[in-house]
Amino acid sequence: MLSALTVGAAGMVIVVRNLLHALLFLILSFVGVAGLYITLSADFIAVVQVLIYAGAIAVLMIFSVMLTPLSDRDNAEGLLRLPALVLSGLVATGIAFVAIETDWQVTSESSFENTSVAIGEALLSPFVLPFEIASVLLVAAMIGAIVLVRED
């Protein structure tokens, strides 16, 4: 049900002609992915997904769509339509084949609870260096975005 919602909304992003409508379907797909995270007992990641993807990134995209005029708001395909269709079809069938045919040794133990505590401990003991590098990356991206759009 959630999977159908997610994939269907993602497919509508391809089909819909208006870029703003495609963006709204993309947000719906993000929310569906957050629901899938909840069913996989990843509660903290689900909240982060709703906050960052369905919140921040969606607002950024709506801004950039609104900053370009109406004539540039179509959602047409370019020259690469057929090769892209073939390639993505191959990727989808390949992934589906591997997912079905492989013998995943699935654990039977129950899902974890309270993932936010474990994530916080993992971020601050074994993953300190990537954590700091990620914060430096965020600062660099923010300054870069400001410099790029500044009127001079």
Binding site: S29, N75, E77, S88, A92
Partner: peptide, 26 residues
Amino acid sequence: LEDVLIVGGALFAIGLYITLAKRNAV
């Protein structure tokens, strides 16, 4: 697990198609 993997594969393929075929940068 298989269902989630297939959903992930379908999402990835749709995203790949959009990235390659669409003309609008957004």
